[in-house]
Amino acid sequence: MSYATLEEFKAHARIGFDDDDDLIEGYLDSATDFIRPFLVDDPEGDSPPSEPSRDLKQATLLIASSWYERRETSIDVTLREIPYGARDIINQIRSWNFG
């Protein structure tokens, strides 16, 4: 389960068509998987919260939309960059969780 929904992503990215829905859901899942290790002690054992906070959704949307928009420019998919705003949100949430 992703921290943000397909509908939230499409509103965020202003997408009005359904052709890329499977691709977008993959980016949302990947963004959630990217964020989760920063927020929990055991990334494999914990699942996303049933109702993620607004800032967690925003970070997910920023990362997923960045990857969606720049999907052809990556040289190495393991070197994915994330937007600064998403990094700031993750760091803030992380400090709340781990002090």
Rank of each mutant, 00 (worst) to 15 (best):
I93T: 03
R54D: 09
R54Y: 01
A4T: 03
Q58C: 07
I63A: 01
A31S: 13
S2A: 15
D22K: 13
I82H: 01
Y84G: 07
G26S: 12
G16P: 00
F17D: 06
P83Y: 05
L61G: 01
S2T: 15
D33E: 10
P37I: 14
V40A: 00
I89C: 05
S47K: 08
S74Y: 09
W67T: 05
R14N: 11
A86L: 06
L62M: 09
I90H: 05
R94S: 12
A11E: 15
P48A: 02
E7Q: 12
P43M: 11
R36T: 12
S53K: 10
L62F: 08
R94F: 10
T5P: 00
I89V: 15
Y27W: 14
D88F: 09
G16W: 09
P49K: 06
D19Q: 14
F34V: 04
D19G: 08
A13F: 07
R14H: 14
R87D: 08
D55P: 00
E8G: 09
S74N: 05
S53N: 05
D19W: 00
E81G: 14
I63E: 00
S30D: 12
I15E: 01
D46A: 11
N91V: 10
P52H: 02
R80T: 08
M1L: 10
Y27N: 06
L6V: 08
F38N: 02
T73G: 06
Q58K: 15
D46L: 12
R54V: 08
P83G: 07
R87P: 00
M1P: 03
D20E: 13
E25W: 10
P83D: 02
D41I: 14
A64M: 09
P43F: 06
N91T: 12
L23Y: 04
T60R: 05
E51S: 10
E25Q: 15
L6P: 06
D46G: 00
D19C: 09
R36C: 03
D55K: 14
L28D: 00
G26Y: 02
D88E: 13
D21G: 09
S74Q: 02
I24D: 00
Y84V: 15
A86C: 08
E51C: 08
R87I: 04
G45H: 00
L79K: 12
S95C: 03
L39M: 10
D21W: 01
H12G: 01
D55A: 10
S66E: 10
D41N: 12
G45A: 13
A64S: 14
T32W: 02
P49M: 03
N97H: 11
W96L: 13
R87E: 11
G45W: 00
L61V: 05
S66V: 02
N91R: 15
P37T: 11
S66A: 08
Y3T: 04
S95N: 09
Q92G: 05
I90Y: 12
R14A: 12
F17C: 04
A64W: 05
D41E: 12
K10L: 03
D76V: 15
S95L: 13
L79R: 14
D88Q: 13
E8F: 14
D76I: 15
S74P: 00
H12Q: 05
E44I: 13
R80D: 02
E7M: 04
A59G: 04
T32Y: 01
I35K: 03
Y84N: 11
P37L: 09
L61I: 09
S74E: 05
T78S: 13
A64Q: 07
N91L: 15
